[in-house]
């Protein structure tokens, strides 16, 4: 579904991703793990077209999406949940969802489906998103990404700063999305979440994928996490 092949990405003269390759498949959760500054968020932004790829290609469902204008990428069916939620704080819940619906031809159906996953948002549609609780804001970021009607979801630390009950709710939502057949790339700091949901895990160090393993192997041998991440 998604194939990232040998991409290089740099911030000005500083190379961040070097010859990085990975794939994401339908109905599968790929967890991207690495220490701070390893290049996880940069990888997500490069896939979304928010950073220029200086070498290599990104293809999605057979279409090359590397170096197309960033606003075209979501029209291919890729939803993005950025690190730190990045809601449009002064806009209402409904307006945030409407921004997500920009690329859709039948927005009402898509929005209804997104709200069905998070019914709590239905009563908050006219509330400014910056006034929501942290958990509700995370629900909204996921719902906004679902408004793109995505086949692939990129989630960059969606449970950051949430209380345990909300973490479970978001984790359940991610598992539901996998059952719905969506491909998911998840960047996550919480190792319990990774062990609970991962189908495959890719470890990134200094802008390169250094090891890929399947979720079952990791659950059987969690010491790999300590070896790679020091946790």
């Amino acid at each position: 579904m998604l194939e990232v092949r040998s991409i290089n990405v740099a911030y000005g003269p500083v190379p961040v991703l070097r010859d990085l390759s990975l794939t994401a498949n339908q109905g599968e959760i790929l967890c991207l793990l690495g220490r701070n500054g390893a290049g996880k968020t940069t990888t997500m932004k490069a896939i979304m077209g928010l950073l220029p790829v200086t070498a290599g290609t990104v293809t999605f469902q057979g279409n090359t999406i590397s170096n197309v204008p960033a606003h075209i990428v979501p029209t291919h069916g890729i939803g993005y949940i950025p690190q730190g939620r990045k809601l449009f704080g002064e806009l209402t819940v409904a307006e945030n969802l409407a921004v997500g619906l920009q690329t859709r031809k039948s927005p009402q159906r898509v929005m209804d489906a997104a709200l069905d996953m998070f019914p709590a948002l239905k009563t908050r549609l006219n509330q400014r998103s910056e006034t929501l609780s942290g958990g509700e804001q995370t629900m909204l970021t996921v719902a906004r990404a679902l408004c793109v009607d995505p086949h692939l979801l990129l989630l960059d630390e969606p449970t950051e700063g949430l209380q345990p009950s909300m973490i479970k709710a978001i984790r359940d939502a991610i598992l539901q999305l996998r059952r719905d057949g969506k491909a998911i790339i998840l960047v996550e700091q919480r190792m319990d979440s990774v062990l609970a949901v991962a189908d495959r895990v890719a470890f990134i160090e200094q802008g390169q994928i250094v090891e890929t393993t399947d979720g079952d192997s990791l659950r059987a041998n969690p010491s790999l996490l300590r070896a790679r991440l020091g946790v």
Binding site: G49, L50, H71, P74, K86, V99, Q102
Partner: peptide
């Protein structure tokens, strides 16, 4: 409010 995130949603 956030031009980068706006782009990620097709704007």
């Amino acid at each position: 409010l956030d031009s980068e995130t706006a782009q990620a949603f097709g704007i």
